[in-house]
């Protein structure tokens, strides 16, 4: 669902999404959008911040208060970062600053939908890469990847933090219990092995020396 009061922009976004085969509803007024969201659920909500009737933050806050966890992508015209922070605090999953590239918007929305799908079905899919949380099984191009227990744990941690930098220490904390003595070297070794096994996958983990690791999904 798209909540956007600018007709031209809304038209462009709707055409793009329909072109990709998605059904999309549009609402221009904040008040009406809020009403609609009360009884209808969507896979994803694209929400403008400056709206007539009711602003995006208010709609978002109300949505989250009612226990609805539909992924929300904020469309904000203001380039002030303060706005984005407020949006994320209010419960947005991502934001994009206007004016934006429709291709980037589509890619971000796919990422959001993927995250959502992975959470509910235990199956994470990114291009040629899949990971089944329940079966602890990963495939690249349909081929099983042979993973050891630590590597599976690491993969789970990284999939849960796509787009976020994790320091080596943070990764170690998540991989090891209190009794075990984690060594940062061990983390590095597991990471190297995992990365080698995932070569060619659309899901990849990059090292940022001095900062940590970041997982990302390549859009095809």
């Amino acid at each position: 669902m798209l909540v956007e009061d600018n007709d031209e922009l809304a038209e462009a976004i709707i055409d793009r999404f329909r072109g990709e085969g998605h059904a999309i509803d549009r609402e221009a007024d904040g008040e009406q959008a809020s009403e609609l969201l009360r009884y209808k659920t969507f896979d994803l909500i694209l929400l403008d911040v400056n709206l007539p009737g009711r602003n995006g933050f208010e709609i978002l806050r109300q949505l989250r208060l009612s226990g609805d966890h539909t992924p929300v992508m904020l469309l904000t015209a203001r380039s002030e970062i303060d706005d984005r922070v407020v949006g994320l605090d209010a419960g947005a999953d991502d934001y994009i600053v206007k004016p934006f590239d429709l291709r980037e918007l589509a890619a971000r929305c796919r990422a959001l939908a993927r995250r959502r799908a992975g959470e509910s079905s235990n199956l994470f899919i990114a291009g040629n890469f899949t990971f089944d949380r329940a079966a602890k099984r990963a495939t690249v191009d349909g081929q099983d990847v042979d993973l050891r227990q630590r590597e599976v744990q690491l993969l789970e941690v990284m999939i849960g933090n796509i787009g976020r930098v994790l320091s080596k220490e943070e990764v170690a904390d998540k991989l090891y219990t209190f009794e075990e003595v984690p060594t940062l070297n061990a983390v590095e070794q597991i990471m190297t092995r995992l990365r080698r096994k995932l070569e060619g996958a659309a899901f990849s983990i990059r090292t940022i020396r001095g900062l940590g690791y970041i997982a990302s999904v390549r859009d095809e």
Binding site: I208, L211, I214, R218
Partner: peptide, 18 residues
Amino acid sequence: VEEFLRHPETEGIDIAVL
């Protein structure tokens, strides 16, 4: 850095923080 790396075109970039 996180925000920067979210752009797809930064994929090949080797970045370090010293």
